[in-house]
Amino acid sequence: MAPNRALYEQVILEHNKKPRNFREMPDATNAIEGYNPLCGDHFTIYVKMNGDIVEDISFAGAGCAISKSSASVMTTLIKGKTKSEAEALFASFHKLVTSPPDVPVDEEKAGRLAVFAGVREFPVRIKCATLAWHTLLSALDGKAGSVSTE
């Protein structure tokens, strides 16, 4: 099977075509823009916090299939989670996409994020996969404005 199939898993293509929670959120408690100056991808992540819990999350912007689908999958996983749960999810996602390509993926642990394991073969795409996550963490830290991958 061509490596592309591994990178562009059906789930990724599907989220790219029909991104979830892809909307602006006028009543967000925080919104922050993430930008990758190397490729121009930019997404704004909106969160509505209820205490420590992410009650609602959405995103808007433009980017490649990897960055867009990663943002989309992320929003589906984060809704209803606490800040520390979100941080733990990102830590395991980051570990997954930056691990050597020959390390077997723990499908059970990675869950719905396992589809992004193909990124490991393409180091330049790691930043695409993590852009939305980095932005989310900044938003949860209460930062404002925009963050850059560089």
């Binding site: 490596p3 990178l7 490649c64 299939a65 990897i66």
Partner: peptide, 21 residues
Amino acid sequence: AHAHDIGQILSEEGVAIRAGH
């Protein structure tokens, strides 16, 4: 398809192009 995805697939097909600004 976004330019970077075009570039990625073309690369796998053995065609080198540039994608970006």
